[in-house]
Amino acid sequence: MADPLSTDLHVPTITPIPLTESTSTPASSATVLHPRTLPAVDPDDPAFQGLGKRAQKRLLRERRYLETKLERRRAEKEKARRKKAELRELVERGLAAPQPKKRKVEQEPTGLRVVIDCSFNELMTQKEINSMAQQIIRCYSANRASPRPTRDLVISSHGGRIKQRFDTQHQTAARWTGVTWDPRPYEEAFSTEELVYLTADATERLSELDESKVYVIGGIVDKNRHKRICYDKAIKQGILTAQLPIGDYIKMASRKILTVNHGTSDLCLFEILLKYMEYRDWQRAFLEVIPQRKFKENQGHGRKRRNGKGDKSGEGDGGDGESDDDEQGDEEEDEEGDEEGDEEGDEEGDEGGGEGGGEKKGEEDEENEENEKNEDKNGEKDEKDKKGKDG
């Protein structure tokens, strides 16, 4: 019987791999910064004087975003071209169905004139200024997509931080068609007799839209902090005020306060005006534009608050403000509107030689910024924990 230990076993030969220049680690390698690492704060830069640590990081992120904007835009366009080429190849090989062509909307402009009053710059935070700019973008987008667009959309008192926002983030807005950027207040551009300020605090209700009038929408995002500000301003100037007849057609779960484009804050609704001019039917316009969560019959069946409790702020007809869900939903709509308006503007610029548009800020950029903020918060928390343990 053969000894099992004497059986010849095949042992593979291991050849040592010599260290080459590509595999060896140099003794002194250059430090490569993480792409999200912010540069150091320049102590001689007056922009950083008097700012806290978080404010300095926020300013650095904004500067970096502007510096890399063109590079990101080129990468996005290249990515879009690559996807179109791949889809075209799949269609030619019969592996994918061709995309339906976009139908051009046949527009019949109306005589309706709408003014967005942007004289409330000093009453809004920077985040609210950004949201206001996004709502204006959605108004432009909705007007271009409407079969019955307005005769003119005027942005009055265009200056201050709202103008700075468009000059830095949405430069192509200056080429929008059908939009007038007027630095003057609306009372200087139009006669008092033809102005009607739309506000939820007005006692008069509109039965129909008069195309000989100029309807003013308050351009303010304040989460209902400043009560009756648009109404009081109009009364002081001797201008007619009116509210849309929402209560005559639908039951709202809270106050009948609507954003510039269509959501819910102390503003009025541009999209509803467009829908009414299209259908000449208030109820149909309200149902198509106002989010379902605003209706009274849907109260208690929507999303819950982040703390897990149900929404109680909108019970009854006399609610003083919006619920947390309303505010969260409106912010989501504003972000979607920003992307939607910018994408339409980009298409116009590509196809029509630069007509219209807004600078696209993609979801990846927003996600990266959010991740950076979270990383900053986590880093500060770790530093505090470490100091506490050392103490």
Results as ranks from 00 to 15, higher is better:
Glu21Tyr: 02
Ser22Gly: 08
Thr23Phe: 00
Ser24Ile: 12
Ser24Arg: 11
Thr25Arg: 11
Thr25Asn: 03
Ala27Val: 06
Ala27Ser: 11
Ala30Arg: 07
Val32Leu: 13
His34Arg: 01
Pro35Lys: 00
Pro35His: 02
Thr37Pro: 04
Thr37Leu: 01
Thr37Gln: 09
Leu38Met: 02
Pro39Ala: 02
Val41Tyr: 03
Asp42Tyr: 10
Asp42Pro: 09
Asp42Trp: 12
Asp42Asn: 15
Asp44Ile: 10
Asp45Lys: 08
Asp45Pro: 10
Pro46Asn: 08
Pro46Lys: 11
Pro46Ala: 12
Ala47Phe: 03
Gly50His: 07
Gly50Trp: 04
Leu51Val: 06
Leu51Gln: 12
Lys53Pro: 01
Lys53Ala: 13
Lys53Gly: 05
Arg54Glu: 09
Ala55Met: 05
Ala55Asn: 10
Gln56Cys: 12
Lys57Gly: 10
Arg58Ser: 06
Arg58Val: 03
Leu59Tyr: 03
Leu60Arg: 10
Leu60Phe: 04
Glu62Ser: 10
Arg63Phe: 03
Arg63His: 05
Arg64Thr: 01
Tyr65Gly: 10
Leu66Phe: 09
Glu67Ile: 09
Thr68Asn: 13
Thr68Arg: 15
Thr68Val: 04
Lys69Trp: 08
Lys69Asn: 11
Leu70Glu: 15
Leu70Thr: 15
Glu71Asp: 14
Arg72Val: 05
Arg73Ile: 03
Arg73Ser: 08
Ala75Cys: 05
Ala75Met: 12
Ala75Asn: 13
Lys77Tyr: 08
Ala80Tyr: 10
Ala80Thr: 10
Arg81Met: 07
Lys84Trp: 03
Ala85Pro: 15
Glu86Leu: 15
Leu87Pro: 01
Arg88Asn: 12
Arg88Phe: 07
Arg88Ser: 14
Glu89Ser: 15
Glu89Gly: 11
Leu90Thr: 09
Val91Gly: 02
Glu92Ala: 15
Glu92Gln: 15
Arg93Asp: 03
Leu95Val: 12
Ala97His: 06
Pro98Tyr: 00
Pro98His: 00
Gln99Lys: 14
Pro100Trp: 04
Lys101Arg: 06
Lys101Tyr: 00
Lys102Leu: 07
Arg103Ile: 13
Arg103Ala: 12
Arg103Tyr: 01
Lys104Gln: 07
Lys104Val: 10
Lys104Ser: 04
Glu106Ile: 05
Glu106Asn: 05
Glu106Phe: 01
Glu106His: 04
Glu108Cys: 03
Glu108Lys: 13
Glu108Gly: 08
Glu108Val: 08
Pro109Glu: 00
Pro109Ser: 00
Thr110Gln: 02
Gly111Arg: 08
